[in-house]
Design a protein around this nucleic acid. Structure first.
Lengths: 166, 166
DNA sequence: GTTGCAAGTTGCAACTAGAAACTTATAATT
DNA sequence: AATTATAAGTTTCTAGTTGCAACTTGCAAC
């Protein structure tokens, strides 16, 4: 009930800590993955993940508290509770995919299944990457950290040329 | 020393589990973030993250074991150990950014600093997103899961048109 | 060769995860 | 209506993990 663990949040002054505060516990991401794959019920999660029931209850509760899953008793059978991804939850998909793609490349060595495809043409999505504002894929060597206040917005090309000339 | 915890790896048959096996523990991602931001030494990590020394030692050891950080004693002062990101480690940047961007939007509410920019023009990178093979940004609703074996490769446009016509 | 410092270890208390049995609310069967 | 079954949790108890603070070890400086 109590929470004596120092939240990671303050420490690093970065929203990464805030994200980890919500998703950084063991099992949270795997429950999320199961949700993305269409599981909605306690027993489904329990059976497919093999997670202990008390931990599962705890994690589902946390995910609901943080607005990542919505908890609804089914109207036709009110024993059944449905856990469904919220908007907030579904926007974790890029994080999950990036992590999965890294795991494929550096750990498991083989492509994961199921595969995420564009529903218009059933073709697999592009690999997640870091891109410049114009869409060029940027390798790590071409990146730099800057203080936010030192970044000068460029705007549209014409505006940019004018202000550069001035 | 012992590892009696069931590895998450097998359970979900997905490389997400493999990635979490390496990066899913408390502090691992924050240590990584600190590395990305130019910290290289034990005492630097300890002071800026406020992590307990034994945990830090443990996590650094794990990250080194998994090839995410390289551990090198400095030649000029062999008390100092340098921890530096490997290729494998630096390729976690997309995952970290995606998580951070999600945290910005849904948890902290403000942009994190420092900001990652394209070093050619000092402009901030594009937001991480899921894209179709042709680069269109795909919202969650336009995505679908498919079994890998059901995905028919399309190849180049010309080839694609020919095979579609046949 | 004593003092200082970086990078760890060790010991102990508090907390968290896991396995299995138990509870509670609803639904299906007799 | 009473019995049995099922979904979703709790509880209990053990084992493993985290965190703090004090201690060690290897090298460097004076």
């Amino acid at each position: 009930m109590t929470k004596l663990r120092e939240p990671l949040e303050e420490i690093a002054g970065c929203s990464l800590s805030a994200a980890l505060e919500v998703m950084g516990e063991r099992w949270s991401f795997l429950i999320l993955r199961a949700s993305f794959n269409g599981l909605h019920h306690f027993e489904e999660f329990q059976a497919t993940l093999g997670i202990a029931r008390n931990i599962l209850a705890n994690r589902l509760g946390r995910l609901v508290q943080h607005g990542i899953l919505a908890r609804t008793p089914m109207p036709d059978d009110r024993r059944k509770i449905e856990y469904r991804l919220t908007q907030k939850g579904s926007e974790l998909l890029p994080s999950m995919l990036a992590l999965r793609q890294w795991g494929e490349k550096w750990e498991s060595g083989f492509p994961s299944t199921p595969v995420l495809v564009d529903s218009r043409d059933n073709q697999p999505i592009r690999r997640i990457a870091i891109q410049a504002h114009d869409g060029r894929v940027l390798p790590y060597e071409e990146l730099m950290w800057m203080h936010a206040e030192d970044v000068k917005p460029l705007g549209q090309t014409t505006v940019q040329l004018i202000s550069e000339a001035a």
